[in-house]
Design a binder for these strands. Structure first.
Lengths: 192, 192
DNA sequence: ATCCTAACGCAACGTCCGTCGCATTTAGGG
DNA sequence: CCCTAAATGCGACGGACGTTGCGTTAGGAT
């Protein structure tokens, strides 16, 4: 995910404008939700001119993509708890926190991904990166002899994490952390 | 889900307009996808005036909600294969078919649910209805003595079906029917 | 310190989307 | 068969959204 921004003039005012705008996006998102997120509103709140927003970010989804990438931690890796079950529980708790945060940037980007292909691509890239890194918990479990070496990381992570996304994002119903833990344990047990 | 339309004049032209419009929505959806689905385009194709669409359906999501409800089968119930695993596999295959259909009305309504609360509510109601009916496979399994009586149907169905939705709708990656079957079996095994 | 130009501010414009008032059609009842 | 009002057709309007051309500011290099 290393961006390596090769912009010709990324410092000073430009950087200040960016952080002002992204901050405005976040507060605007918290107050009015994704539906109320407008270029004009962000411009008014941030004090940056409309035209600048249209030029640099094009669309509302574009703003959220930038917010996602700004918040992406390049050094992220899954917690090492010593067992597959513990690792999966930790992963699910992170996802649970991200989905129940207010505002949930993850949920906003998901909504945005249904509008522009750019946002959809950015989200896909983000998740691919995360799933790839999280595959480490599987290889560690294999190394410990907990599970067979042929285990498919993607399918296992899908079993663990998909119920959270489905329940909260699509079914739009609350999910407790205990339920999140529960699905992590089911996934861990499914490969023993 | 019984609609019981109490409109004061539901027959004749009104019904013809509705079916024309919904047909136009479906073909338009197939040709241009959800992004290209416009009130104007539907009006042009169906031969119904723009104003009529705005008056009866308000928005594009409104059109899709109506399409969803028009296609909802009030007598639907899950297949009875004689085993929990078989029943869950059958359920997952139905979902798999609905998500990979072209055009997938389910996917379109999901996209719409991120735009208006009406669409979100309609989708929630639809899924609640389906999950409620599908709980029958759990009670049948309990009656057969396959699984303990305290089993939570919702959690079980979440384990079985969530990976399909997550993989196809959010991760936007293909899922084979074999993988869909696989997740149904994991869910069945998780409650033994 | 000076210059160049990327980035931003500003105002005006054009387009698309949804709404409104009024005319016309037609479903359904008497 | 006729009458009423629901439903649709039609044109025009207003506002929100995105774009464009041009002037201004300031970052970064010389």
């Amino acid at each position: 995910m290393i961006a390596e921004v090769r912009a010709s003039r990324p410092g000073g005012r430009t950087a200040r404008v960016r952080s002002d705008v992204l901050a405005a996006v976040e507060t605007e998102l918290a107050e009015h939700g994704y539906d109320g997120l407008t270029i004009d509103a962000v411009a008014a709140r941030s004090g940056v001119h409309r035209t600048t927003l249209y030029r640099r970010w094009k669309t509302v989804p574009g703003l959220l993509v930038d917010l996602l990438e700004a918040g992406a931690d390049d050094s992220w890796e899954p917690a090492d708890t010593g067992s597959l079950e513990g690792d999966l529980v930790a992963v699910n708790r992170e996802i649970h926190a991200a989905l129940t945060a207010r505002p949930s940037i993850t949920q906003a980007v998901i909504a945005a991904s249904f509008r522009t292909t750019d946002a959809a691509d950015a989200l896909t890239r983000f998740w691919e990166d995360r799933y790839e890194r999280t595959a480490l918990v599987v290889s560690r479990a294999v190394a410990r002899g907990e599970i067979p070496s042929g285990t498919d990381p993607h399918q296992l992570l899908l079993t663990a994490t998909a119920p959270l996304y489905h329940q909260v994002v699509l079914l739009r119903q609350p999910m407790s952390r205990e339920q999140a833990d529960h699905h992590a344990r089911i996934a861990a047990a499914s490969v023993r």
